[in-house]
């Protein structure tokens, strides 16, 4: 399938048409002095030049709170199926990589119908980064660009976007873009330049090893003093978990309606930094110490999850946790580099 080019005006006309279609359209918009994914009402509000969104787009596949089933108290439980088709506009490559990882995690082993149904109903229009955020380190994590998962990848080359549409869903959208023409060699060269620049520049924090070394590095770091040193300052607020595109832990709870007759089972985001995350009946907490919880997050990103997804590191370098952490301790690069300084790599 060929790659096309559309002017920004033509693209805006396309977004306007899309907003008026039967699909829900979600796009990146300004929110105060930051940016957020939200339902797009007006094509003028779409900001593909954003640096980073407050929350990653995972909330459209794994909502903060989601009903898993409804029940009558003392009666049968019913599965709730909601199939809303939607288009996500403006997913950055690092977030695309995170979604690809989640797709693998939620479909492997026991197939999670709720996540996967939402994912299948979602068309993703990704875009290469135009403005690097203050804490991005995607270059260090090899996620400054992406090569799969999206239905369309847009690259801003000045007055136009280069439009790569490798899927049928993407091609269907391109068909709606009046004025889309086959990309010229010059356009493709410009796209290449943008991507090469991002590969070099999205690196406000530099990991001093290849990410693929992390699982091995962490094999020797379980007792490293860095966990205690950093966690001394941790408020256990869970902000690092909540803003992370690869954190997907959740809790399953039941809720009864006011009539005490019907209710629902839902799941809601949870976070391994929160104090009671690993507490079981009888108040046994298997990760009572802050340092244990702090270590768990960085082991999960650098070792545990990678072992389930073919070695891919479950930190995509978006830098959101670095910005969200009020104690300035969440930066994975800081922690991994500290361990690197004192640990021999073979």
């Amino acid at each position: 399938m060929s790659v096309s080019t559309v002017t920004k005006d033509q693209f805006k006309a396309f977004v306007s048409a899309l907003v008026g279609s039967d699909q829900k359209v979600v796009g990146v918009q300004a929110k105060g002095d930051k940016f957020a994914f939200g339902e797009l009402i007006d094509a003028d509000d779409l900001r593909l030049d954003y640096d980073v969104t407050i929350l990653p787009p995972k909330k459209y596949m794994l909502p903060q709170k989601e009903t898993l089933l409804q029940f009558e108290v003392g009666g049968a439980a019913q599965t709730v199926e909601k199939g809303v088709r939607k288009v996500l506009l403006g997913v950055h490559p690092y977030d695309m990589v995170a979604i690809n990882q989640m797709d693998e995690l939620f479909s492997q082993g026991e197939y999670d119908t709720h996540y996967m149904n939402r994912r299948k109903n979602t068309t993703i229009v990704a875009c290469d980064v135009v403005t690097p955020s203050e804490n991005v380190f995607a270059s260090s994590m090899n996620t400054a660009t992406c090569d799969k998962g999206f239905d369309i990848l847009l690259t801003d080359i000045g007055d136009s976007y280069v439009v790569d549409a490798p899927t049928d869903k993407g091609q269907a959208l391109v068909a709606m873009m009046d004025g889309a023409a086959e990309a010229t060699d010059a356009d493709l060269d410009k796209r290449k330049a943008v991507q090469e620049k991002n590969i070099a520049d999205l690196n406000k924090h530099e990991l001093e090893c290849k990410p693929s070394y992390l699982p091995k590095l962490l094999e020797k770091a379980y007792e490293h003093p860095v966990w205690e040193e950093k966690a001394r300052l941790c408020y256990s607020c869970g902000s690092c978990n909540q803003v992370c595109p690869t954190c997907y832990c959740f809790d399953v709870q039941d809720e009864v309606e006011w009539d005490l007759k019907s209710g629902c089972r839902y799941r809601a985001w949870d976070g391994c930094l929160l104090e009671n995350f690993a507490t079981v009946a009888g108040d046994h907490n298997f990760r009572k110490k802050r340092a244990d919880r702090f270590r768990h997050r960085l082991y999960r990103k650098g070792k545990y999850v990678p072992s389930k997804i073919g070695g891919q590191i479950a930190c995509v370098g978006c830098g959101r946790c670095v910005s969200a952490c009020t104690a300035h301790i969440a930066n994975p690069v800081d922690v991994y580099n500290t361990i690197l300084e004192t640990t021999e790599l073979s």
């Binding site: 082993g109 997907y248 799941r267 079981v280």
Partner: peptide, 12 residues
């Protein structure tokens, strides 16, 4: 442990 989802997803 606190097996919440039972299917290897929720992380608890």
């Amino acid at each position: 442990k606190n097996m919440s989802c039972g299917i290897g997803k929720c992380g608890h």
